[in-house]
Write a protein that binds this DNA or RNA. Structure first.
Length: 263
DNA sequence: CGATTATGATTAA
DNA sequence: TAATCCTAATCGC
């Protein structure tokens, strides 16, 4: 379930569980076999997330670059791990914890320069304390096209996916079809603030629940994830009950409430 | 049990 | 804009 928070949680978990050790690496599925053999038993220095990208640094400045894509996952289990079932691209076996990577769109061995080049192509990551919102603002102000497309463009802002696109624009009351350059500065400031807050919230909880606790009757912990969103995959707006619009926007399905987000 | 769907992104046309 | 990649869960029959 990868938007930016997922990768930051993963980096934290790898740092807590495996960094400082010299884990065994293997590729049961075979497609990362050569690199896994090369790094097998090498000290894992640290894991780093930027946007939806994960970089795992090994001794000797070797970096494993992972992008989960639409359905990639890391599965954690206590060491020693059970024999791999199905397609496991990369298995990292630490002293206490093991991780299986399945279905990534990308898993490759790169150099630090390659890692820098990937990060250079990305917009500011709202989960990064040093993120500069002005970079995002400049792209929105000068770009053409709908703001709903811009938010999914990782070179504009890094880490937002289809769920957050729908929910963030709902919260600031902006229709996804509105032209990015027509978003006024105060609205952008609110959008950035909401983006940071919701990504941090997802980072803490591990799931994207965007509704304000005051707007629902029950404790959020008792809420199913799908119930915790205003418009994403909702039939009706969770705030006002208006039927939710859904239409293709930038190669994905967009969701919006025509009442709360007038166009 | 096959078809569909999914919180993504690149490449070709 | 369309085809493509990768995996697993869910849906419909």
């Amino acid at each position: 379930m990868p938007e930016g928070h997922t990768l930051h949680r993963l980096a934290r978990a790898l740092n807590d569980d495996v960094a400082g050790e010299a884990p065994a690496l293997s590729s049961p599925q075979g497609r990362f076999a050569a690199a896994a053999a090369r790094l097998d038993g090498r000290p894992l220095v640290r894991a780093e997330a930027y946007g939806k990208h994960l970089f795992v640094w090994f001794d000797g400045d070797e970096v494993v670059h992972v992008h989960l894509g639409l359905y990639g996952t890391f599965v954690r289990q206590p060491s020693p791990p059970a024999p791999p079932v199905g397609q496991v691209r990369l298995r990292v076996t630490g002293e206490r914890w093991s991780y299986d990577l399945r279905g990534p769109t990308r898993c490759e061995l790169v150099t630090p320069a390659d890692r820098d080049a990937v990060v250079a192509r990305l917009g500011p990551d709202p989960l990064d304390r040093r993120a500069d919102p002005e970079r995002m603002w400049r792209r929105l102000a000068k770009g053409r096209g709908p703001v709903g497309v811009a938010l999914m463009d990782q070179s504009v802002v890094a880490g937002i996916g289809n769920v957050l696109r729908a929910e963030l624009l709902f919260i600031v009351g902006v229709h996804p079809s509105r032209q990015a350059r027509d978003v006024a500065r105060p609205t952008f400031d609110a959008l950035w603030e909401v983006t940071v807050a919701q990504l941090r919230r997802a980072y803490r909880s591990g799931r994207i629940i965007t509704v304000d606790p005051k707007e629902v009757g029950r404790p959020l912990s008792r809420l199913r994830q799908e119930e915790g969103r205003y418009v994403y995959k909702q039939d009706v707006c969770r705030r006002c009950g208006t039927p939710v619009q859904r239409w293709p926007l930038g190669a994905r399905i967009a969701y919006a409430c025509p009442t709360c987000q007038p166009s």
